[in-house]
Design a protein around this nucleic acid. Structure first.
Lengths: 217, 217
DNA sequence: GTCTATAACCGGATAGAC
DNA sequence: GTCTATCCGGTTATAGAC
């Protein structure tokens, strides 16, 4: 255990990809997503997660030195896939900003487990003592900051009406996204998350775009 | 334990009020809300809940014969206060429907613990094996059904545009409510849940109301 | 109505064999 | 890198005293 780095693992500098030989780590991460989704953090069990991977609890703790470091690794791993992918490049317009969110909804619609996990952990994390509290607080304000910035630039460029309440629009869009994910997780067949979000995005964008200005695509 | 009725308790027929002598039951219910909010269902502990009330785990199980029946009682107790209060009377118009939702947001803004509990349990309940799965599935479809009905009647009465997508509007409003509650629970000081929802409600109602028709108040 | 005691089990983390 | 063994504590639920 002196050679293991617990929740971090070795990775190349450039893109956060993992060296070969970490397939076991990745399998643990994937299994952990499903367990955190089903049980939340506190009620998840390292032994049950390990069993899904085909090892014992002791074996799992060789890769992640504690339950909390496993949670951190799961969250960081998800962020490498998502946040950079969807928020890495600055949107050139408000329209593109909403399009990006719709594509994110579309992507999430293919990963029920991850959505359920984020639903549960986000809800749990409202407690300051929760190990994911800092993560979600930071993540929320970061997404809010980026989107508000994009919308403000769109106001400056003349795309959006000058009186658009950028922080409020951003917060509302996030609320719709999170709220739809809750409903979709409860009833994946009965809720068309992507269509619902696209309808919201189109209507909201239209409402704050300067009149007569055509929307791309 | 043969005289206790576990999760139901005795109540008068008319309004679900509890007979005197059930103060202990009510205190347990209140404590349980805080624990389910903080720990979720699985990771909550009867002994810790009991300790908050000033009794032992054994004493608690005299009032609720199992952990699951305690959860059911908590949910039913909340519904007596909320759903009937806000959805008992049929809204006379779409405007009143949205006003009712805004008042519900306002009411919820005074009860952080209950909001946190519903956030966590709703997220957890997406798992079919969760003891609250049936409750939230039913509750969601019920709220959706009622609101969709109200909107449809508003279309028929000429208040709303004929092409309004009533189920989509209803689902979206619920998503905004739930999503804002997640953000508010994470940062109660930094999020004005009521103002955010009112802004959403006003704008959305305006977008689907027939042009030139004045909005009450 | 509340307590204590107990049954039977599961939790995370550590140590050390291989 | 994975296992087994172990420590110490927590979990729900039951039984029975008072």
């Amino acid at each position: 255990m002196s050679t293991s780095r617990g929740g971090n693992g070795r990775r190349t500098a450039a893109r956060g990809t993992y060296a070969v030989g970490d397939e076991r780590r990745l399998r643990i991460l994937d299994a952990a997503v499903e367990h955190f989704a089903q049980w939340g953090f506190h009620a998840s069990s390292l032994a049950r997660i390990a069993k899904d991977v085909g090892i014992t609890q002791g074996g799992l703790l060789h890769h992640f030195r504690s339950k909390e470091s496993l949670l951190v690794a799961v969250l960081e791993h998800s962020d490498e896939q998502d946040v950079e992918r969807f928020f890495g490049t600055e949107p050139a317009s408000a329209a593109e900003c909403f399009t990006t969110l719709t594509r994110l909804a579309s992507h999430n619609a293919t990963r029920l487990g991850r959505v359920k996990m984020f639903n549960v952990l986000l809800a749990e994390a409202s407690n300051p003592g929760h190990p994911a509290h800092a993560y979600f607080t930071r993540r929320n304000s970061e997404v809010l900051r980026r989107m508000t910035g994009s919308l403000r630039r769109a106001v400056d460029s003349g795309e959006l009406k000058p009186d658009a309440d950028c922080p409020a629009v951003a917060r509302e869009a996030i609320a719709v996204m999170d709220g739809l994910q809750l409903q979709w997780a409860l009833d994946p067949e009965g809720v068309d998350m992507v269509a619902q979000f696209r309808a919201y995005a189109d209507r909201t964008l239209r409402a704050i775009t300067v009149t007569g200005r055509g929307l791309p695509a």
